[in-house]
Amino acid sequence: MREYFSNIWTSLATIAIGMKVTFKHMFVPAVTIQYPDVRPELPERERNRLYVNMDDCIGCDQCSRACPVSCIEIETVKGLPTDDIGKTSNGKKKALWVTKFNIDFAKCCYCQLCVFPCPTECIYMTDVYEFSEFERKSLVYDFVTLTPEEREQKKLNYQKYEAEKAAEKAAVKKPVTPPVTEVKPKIENPPSTETQGENKVS
């Protein structure tokens, strides 16, 4: 009998305590961030869409090899001795034409493993997180700055060069003028460049 009434009492009491808690929370300011109107401030180490600064990329393929899901595809062509491919920002001379640098963001798991081994720190994570697409293949980003024709050109050039070398024809002709046309990569809003540079394990 005592248990019977204590049951009633504890039920009513605990329900009242619970109701007090929820009632108090009616007047606590909400934690909701009204996303499209208000944007959360992202920490500086945010890991979202990758960006590759092709001016600095030497085409060493280290990032592609570090990637656990193989979503970076890089193809390079050796530059001719006469080509001026340019220099990286830390002064290394580039020796390869990067004719293909695709990152498939549908596969990418944003693990950042590709960022650390890069010798020139040219691949990094940005804070762009809104890049949904209707088709999967539009998530394959092409970072190469050369136009498709130029890429073909470079490959042909190198093949020709090889062939010529193989035939051991000493006559060198037709110096190829490097193209100067700037082709913008697919990224519309160039992301902020200050990323987690200071945390790099080189």
């Binding site: 049951n7 504890t10 039920s11 605990t14 329900i15 305590i17 619970g18 007090k20 808690v21 929820t22």
Partner: peptide, 9 residues
């Protein structure tokens, strides 16, 4: 605890 743990139900 108030809200859930000790709730009779």
């Amino acid at each position: 605890n108030d809200l859930l743990t000790y709730n009779k139900i």
